[in-house]
Amino acid sequence: MNTITRRTITIRLLDESGSVAMQWQVNNAWPTKITSTDLKSDGNEVAVDTIEIAHEQLIITNGKAN
């Protein structure tokens, strides 16, 4: 319990046609903070979750070249 496994994460930004425009590869990543919106029964706000990730290496590539 309370052990964090480091992982490789790939984040892809898609354009309007669904093709990869940019790509980020995050190596040996682990979550450091997770927050979410307070949900209110009388509110109509959009729920947004946020995750902060620490990592050892970030590689940025242009998705169209891959």
Rank of each mutant, 00 (worst) to 15 (best):
N2P: 04
V26Q: 13
N62V: 10
A21C: 06
I4P: 01
T32A: 05
H55T: 02
T32W: 05
S41W: 01
L39S: 09
L58P: 01
N28Q: 15
E56C: 12
K33W: 08
A47F: 06
D42Q: 05
T5M: 00
R12N: 14
L14V: 02
L58K: 02
A21R: 12
T10M: 07
T35Q: 10
T8V: 08
T35I: 03
A21T: 03
D38N: 11
I51R: 11
W30G: 14
D38L: 15
S17I: 05
G43F: 00
T10Q: 10
T32I: 13
R7Y: 05
T32G: 14
Q57N: 12
I51M: 15
D38Q: 13
L13D: 09
R6Y: 05
K64Y: 15
I34G: 05
I59E: 10
E16Q: 15
G18F: 03
E56M: 11
I11V: 12
T10C: 09
T8E: 05
R7W: 00
T10P: 01
G63V: 03
Q57P: 00
N28V: 02
I59C: 08
D49K: 05
K33M: 10
W24S: 12
T5P: 00
A47T: 12
E45G: 06
V20G: 05
T5Y: 02
E45C: 00
M22F: 11
T3W: 01
G63A: 14
T50G: 00
T10W: 00
V20Y: 12
R12F: 01
L58T: 07
G18L: 03
M1G: 13
D49Q: 08
N28T: 07
